[in-house]
């Protein structure tokens, strides 16, 4: 199995979000980055499991500048064989998808793994864009994937339940919870990662069709109204008459 795993990075989940004074940019000062949890915990680990079971290779793919290599190294330490980095700022989902497609087109990957979404911009865009550019079937929000020969059996999250399906390789899959169990890199993995290759390639031209023009903070909560724990009639009354939600 020749497997590609696309990984993005995202601010650490506890990051305090700040914008520039004119509200046109995310203020990256002091922000710690992590690998997007869906990519690290689910997409990468399931790809590694398939490689262990069926043989083959796992290649990481990332669009981002050199400083993002920390995240790529972590993926290599968890067990990927090699990595490709497109040396460019990931300026939009369309831009990223075009990079993945341009690279993957000639490489004949059996499965292109992605995360279900990046938890900063919560886009859930790159996987479907990429699948269309590659003219491949796409299974989104998969929580189970089994391979037999070149055919796969999957299940995916749908509203209030799950759906199961079969598809032959090649295909694109975006991974959700339950796909695999998070792996923590060990010392040996970290040492070996230092010697694994990161192939840096130039970006193909691609236009951003949607761009951010402004950021805003959410409205401040006005403060919690505390209710006497003995008086739940009062809470019900407030929910009905004041908040009007029941």
């Amino acid at each position: 199995m020749k497997l590609l795993v696309c990984v993005s990075q995202t601010p650490d989940t506890t990051t305090k979000v700040k914008f520039s004074a004119d509200n046109t940019a995310f203020d990256t000062n002091g922000v710690q980055y992590i690998m997007n949890p869906y990519d690290e915990w689910y997409a990468l680990v399931r790809a590694l499991e398939l490689k262990e079971q069926l043989g083959g290779s796992v290649t990481l793919f990332h669009v981002g500048p050199k400083e993002n290599e920390t995240v790529i190294r972590k993926g290599l330490a968890i067990g990927a064989d090699s990595a490709v980095r497109v040396d460019a700022v990931a300026s939009s989902a369309t831009f990223v998808a075009k990079q993945v497609a341009a690279y993957a087109k000639a490489e004949n990957f059996d499965v292109v793994f992605m995360g279900k979404e990046t938890i900063d911009y919560n886009g859930s865009e790159v996987p479907a864009l990429t699948a269309e550019l590659l003219d491949m079937p796409f299974i989104s929000y998969a929580n189970n994937l089994k391979m037999e020969g070149n055919s796969a059996t999957l299940s995916r999250e749908i509203e209030g339940g799950k759906e199961t399906m079969e598809v032959d390789t090649p295909f694109v899959v975006s991974c959700a919870k339950d796909m695999a169990e998070q792996r923590i890199p060990n010392m040996r993995g970290i040492m070996m990662a230092k010697r694994k290759p990161i192939n840096v390639i130039a970006a193909v031209a691609a236009e951003d069709l949607a761009t951010i023009v402004r950021y805003d903070y959410p409205p401040e909560k006005t403060g919690v109204k505390l209710i006497d724990p003995e008086n739940m009639d009062e809470l019900v009354n407030l929910l009905h008459n004041e908040a009007k939600v029941i």
């Binding site: 601010p11 989940t13 990051t15 979000v17 914008f19 995310f26 938890i119 900063d120 911009y121 919560n122 951003d208 069709l209 949607a210 761009t211 951010i212 023009v213 402004r214 950021y215 805003d216 903070y217 959410p218």
Partner: peptide, 18 residues
């Protein structure tokens, strides 16, 4: 159009040019 970003810690307004 506006959407929530950073898991509800902010909003971003996107402009579509196409």
């Amino acid at each position: 159009v506006k959407k929530g970003v950073f898991s509800g810690k902010g909003f971003a307004t996107y402009s579509i040019s196409s």
